[in-house]
Design a protein around this nucleic acid. Structure first.
Lengths: 140, 140
DNA sequence: ATTGGTGCAAAGGTTTTGCAAAAGT
DNA sequence: ACTTTTGCAAAACCTTTGCACCAAT
């Protein structure tokens, strides 16, 4: 039995969009706008339902916008590596930085060893200012 | 000019409640229920407005529930230490663990030095399973 | 033919806003 | 007296649900 369901236009386009936005997170509205631009006007309900499925298939992770008032979605690398490391999202430009370096993995290990905490990387997003945005800001 | 505004019953009670819940985060509804139990029935709008002010006064931080559909609030230690370290919230029992150990601060320093990222501890919450909940789960 | 996907309308939940009345300073 | 806070009603916003219809296998 396949898990992927049918291959519909909407599903393909959503995945395509998310893939092209690998380094950010997108809102339901962002997706709706994209589909509109593709000439594939899609009811927002359909988008919600597709996202639900894509989340189950572990093709993306869901987190919430900074204001906590809506959901944002992030594409996950096919190899599943994204589920093993943390992500930082810049509070200014929304760029997502993948922390797949040793030190960050050590931090995750530290949490487990010293604090007994099993971190859930799919639910956690760190927020901060990235280098580029900091420079822009101090330059201003 | 004072920043604190007037000292109203509602404000006092909300702070009192948040202080008593230092190690969790509470929702607006939690606060409303508490006020009700105190015999101080309060319109939910008022609670939202008080929380807004308390946030400005840096007495609490706001983050979003796991489902991303509502805001949660966490009391901040008077000395402001909470703004300098990260917090983990257990996805099972909602307990908040303060990461004020050296290794965690090293991690924050690492993000700045190696990745140029200035982490914002007031906006970041890590999610994972705490030791107690993990043991309960594996024991079941 | 069967199963899964879609659109629409309606409803649910959380949060915000405007205005007049009440309370704190 | 003056300023802030409150309550109420209404609205805004995001998300979910039910049902009939359409599309993919």
């Amino acid at each position: 039995m396949r898990t992927g369901g049918y291959n519909t236009k909407v599903k393909k386009l959503i995945l395509e969009f998310l893939e092209s936005k690998k380094n950010t997170s997108v809102s339901v509205q962002n997706i709706a706008d994209y589909l509109n631009n593709c000439g594939e006007e899609t009811n927002i309900t359909t988008i919600y339902r597709q996202l639900e499925k894509l989340e189950e298939e572990k093709k993306l992770i869901r987190h919430s916008a900074e204001d906590g008032k809506k959901a944002l979605f992030q594409y996950i690398a096919d190899d599943g590596e994204c589920l093993k490391h943390l992500h930082v999202q810049c509070t200014a430009c929304s760029k997502i930085i993948h922390l797949d370096c040793c030190d960050s993995k050590e931090f995750i290990a530290h949490l487990l060893e010293k604090h007994g905490i099993t971190l859930d990387c799919s639910k956690t997003v760190l927020y901060g200012l990235c280098e580029d945005c900091k420079n822009k800001r101090s330059g201003a």
